[in-house]
Structures are given as structure tokens and as C-alpha cells.
């Protein structure tokens, strides 16, 4: 993936968030339900962006683990919504035509059982 300084602007515009607002308190990470498995965690993801290490985040597994639960944005003392930042990062990757999941990967039994909503959301979120 080609990374340059315009990416910061893209991320800020797509997410509507100002990266410099984050003062790295970690409250987002502390409340995130998937942080135990997420790498990097929300606060560190924002830190990477603040440091200009865009590709490190865009190529990470962390951005795909956000469950879009909105806890981080709800409680952030500085009004930063990491969920939106993760969404923007995923969008940038997806708009570069790099898809994240394919139907073949999904358990067939699951397709029969689970509500439609789960699939629509997953394919809306994770495919180009």
C-alpha cells in the first residue's frame, strides 16, 4: 500500500475526528470489549497515527476487531471517537480494493443459524 502524508488528512476527514485531540489517557482501551484481542489497542492506534506511522496501523489486525460498540467514543474525555477512526482506516484499505473477508471463510452452519443482520453488517464492513 502506498502511504503518504495526505493519509492523515484523509483519516481526519473520513472520521471527522481530530487526531491531536487525543491525550493518550487510555480510557478508550480500558472500556473496549475487544481490546483483550486487539492489536494495537485503540489508544495506541491513535498514537501510531499521531506519530505518522499510518501504514503500521492500516496494515494491522486491530482495526478489523472494532465491534462498533461506541464505548470508546462515548466515554473519551476529549471527545475522540476511535470507532470512527477505525472505520475510516478500514475504508481506506477497502477503497484500495483489499477485501477483508470472503464468504468461503464463513462456517456453513453458522450461515444457516445466525441472523441476516450479522452477515449484512460483516460484508458491508469488511468487503470492498
Amino acid at each position: 500500500m502506498i502511504i503518504d502524508e495526505t493519509i492523515k488528512k484523509d483519516i481526519e476527514e473520513l472520521s471527522g475526528q481530530k487526531l491531536s485531540d487525543c491525550y493518550q489517557c487510555g480510557e478508550c482501551t480500558a472500556g473496549c470489549p475487544t481490546a483483550f484481542a486487539m492489536e494495537p489497542v485503540p489508544s495506541q492506534s491513535i498514537r501510531l497515527l499521531q506519530l505518522g506511522k499510518y501504514s503500521e496501523l492500516l496494515e494491522s489486525a486491530g482495526i478489523w476487531l472494532c465491534a462498533a460498540c461506541n464505548v470508546c467514543g462515548e466515554r473519551c474525555p476529549r471527545g475522540v471517537d476511535y470507532g470512527k477512526i477505525a472505520d475510516a482506516c478500514r475504508t481506506i484499505v477497502l477503497r484500495n480494493k483489499v477485501t477483508h473477508i470472503t464468504l468461503e471463510k464463513v462456517d456453513k452452519k453458522f450461515i444457516l443459524d445466525a441472523p441476516q443482520q450479522a452477515f449484512i453488517a460483516a460484508f458491508r464492513k469488511f468487503t470492498t
Binding site: C25, E27, T29, A30, G31, S43, V71
Partner: peptide, 21 residues
């Protein structure tokens, strides 16, 4: 080093969710 996001009771204990940034 990290801010606490949630505090709740579990039995007679109090659980604190924080982060180590």
C-alpha cells in the same frame, strides 16, 4: 498509566477496568 473506563460490582468485590497505555 491509564484512565479507568468502568467500575462495577462483582460479588463483594469491585472490578475496575483500566488500561496500561
Amino acid at each position: 498509566r491509564g484512565k479507568v473506563s468502568k467500575i462495577f460490582e462483582k460479588g463483594d468485590k469491585v472490578i475496575v477496568w483500566g488500561a496500561d497505555t
